[in-house]
Structure formats: structure tokens, C-alpha cells
Design a protein around this nucleic acid. Sequence first.
DNA 1: TTTAATTCGGATAATTTTATCCTATTTTAT
DNA 2: ATAAAATAGGATAAAATTATCCGAATTAAA
Lengths: 144, 144
Amino acid sequence: MFSKACEYGIRASIFIALNSFEGRRVSPKEIAAEIDSPQAFTAKILQALVRHNVIQSVKGAYGGFEIDKNRIKDIKLSDIVDAIDGDNIYKGCGLGLKACDEDRPCPMHDKFKVVREELKTMLESTNLEDLALDIKEGDTFLRR
Amino acid sequence: MFSKACEYGIRASIFIALNSFEGRRVSPKEIAAEIDSPQAFTAKILQALVRHNVIQSVKGAYGGFEIDKNRIKDIKLSDIVDAIDGDNIYKGCGLGLKACDEDRPCPMHDKFKVVREELKTMLESTNLEDLALDIKEGDTFLRR
DNA sequence: TTTAATTCGGATAATTTTATCCTATTTTAT
DNA sequence: ATAAAATAGGATAAAATTATCCGAATTAAA
Ligand code: FES
Ligand code: FES
């Protein structure tokens, strides 16, 4: 469904949010260890998320990645997916036609559109706060 | 959402079904031209679909690809996706954990599961006959 | 001001996916 | 039998994704 980069990006964002609640910055090393991802590759993804303004970075000693505590609840899954995988999964044709076009639809269009919309709604209505809180409660996990 | 191979595979299967209604076999060349896909790559995908028993091939002169006319309505989109992309999209964890596990779910699990199930239901309840008939009526298109 | 701890960014490598090419094999018609 | 028309399948190649490495730039503390 999502690219590896996007999966790592979401898991990383949740872990950063979790720590930002406590006012703690985290390093790519710590993040990769926690979410079980390749460290250098994860670092690249974090850079992309910074560029897209999803997370913030602080350089130098005592630096690391963080998310403004007050904005955690405003960051939606769709922001992360958009930043890394782009909008094809929301807007693209399920059969790979150049664009999804109501006026000249592919055979899967009517049925696919429903699923695509549901995915969109789900990603747009899920924020980092919700996800991080579940982890804190021990109900969900970032690795296995 | 799906791989290129899978997109081509679905489009090809629909076109083959359309022709099999008329008792006509089609070649990879004709298929690729019709669905706007690379011919040799498409041929490989057709071979895979034959191996998975989704379509049939007849070698030699006057040969080509076809689908048993009586089985067109029994072939579901999920059969094609399964054959080419496997079952990860139905069964896998949305955040890329090794497997989706109810007992140790990822933070996205509850919400992702709903979308994944809807996709599964959609693919399992859509058959090649429905898709091919819409094209015949001129309501939908395989290329653009 | 120096040092240590960091992120940033470029270069490169490995792997997977997508794509092409060529030959072998099969089958029908002549 | 032979020739022609097809699919099958192996060997590569190209492109995209995933992954690693290393030095440059930045920042805070000592
Ligand atoms: S045209 Fe294919 S999904 Fe809309
Ligand atoms: S555990 Fe991630 S989707 Fe079920």
C-alpha cells in the first residue's frame, strides 16, 4: 500500500511525537532502533519530513528531531503520506491510467473510488496525538 | 496501490475477456496496443496469469490468449491481484510490521483494517464479466 | 575558543521492479 | 514433412526504490 519510506516515516513520526510530549528530542539512531528500520535511510526520510514541515530538527549538540507539542494533534497521517509518497494513492487511477477521470473512467473506477475515498478519509481523520496516546497506554506497538 | 505489473494484468484480463465473449483469441501484441503497455513485459505477466490459471493460452499458429467463456463471470479482481501482487495488500500490516497481528497491533491497525477489508470485499465482489460489459457499452475505457 | 554532538547532503551501492531482446518450443495449415 | 504463426522462457538492461557511507555544516557546552 505505502512505500517502505512512507511506513518508516509514519512510524518515526509517531515515535517523535511520543517523545515530544515529554519534551525530549530524539536522534535518527534512537528512532531507527525503536521502529526497527535502517538508520541512514531513516535519516533521509526525516530530512524530507523536515522539508515538508511535518517535523522539526535542531542541529548541533543536544539537537535532534521533535514536533511542536501544540501541533501534534494537528498533524494528520495524510500529511506524512503526502510528503513521502505524494498524492497518487488519493487521486490516481487504480488501473494506472494517466489520471483518474470521471468523464472517461476505467472499468474499476466506480468501485475503486469508494475505497480510495475511504482511505483518504481515514488518513485525514487520524492525527499523531491519537496514535501516540495508544502506544503510551501500551495498546499498540511500533515494532515486533 | 497496485504494482505496474498488476495494473497491466488487470487491464489485459479485461481485454481478453471482452474478446473471449466473441470467441476471439488475442496476442500480446494486440493486448499491449489496446491497453497501452510495454509488449514484452505484458507477455511475461500473461504467462504468470496462465500459470495461476486465471487465463488460458493456446500455442502455435491461430493461438493466443483467451478465457473460458463460461468462467469469465467467476474470475474476480482478487484472483488477478493475488496472482501478481500476492496477498500482502489484503493481509499485511499498513505500517509494514512483519505481519498484521490483532494481539500486538500497530497504531494504525484499527483504522487501517477497515479500509483493507473494504478493498478486499470490493476486489472479491467484482468479476471480469461486469468489467468487460461496461467497456462494451462504451461507459468505461482501458486507455486514455 | 575549542571540542563534542548533532543534522545535512552528496556519492555510491544493493535490491527490486519494470522493460527489452532473442531463441526455443509448440501447433496449425499447406 | 515443411513452413508459418504463435506462446514460453532465459538472459540482459534500465529505472526506481531501498540502503549505506562519509565529510561538511551547525550548535551547545566546557
Ligand atoms: S479512472 Fe481509474 S479509478 Fe478513476
Ligand atoms: S498490525 Fe498494522 S495493520 Fe494490523
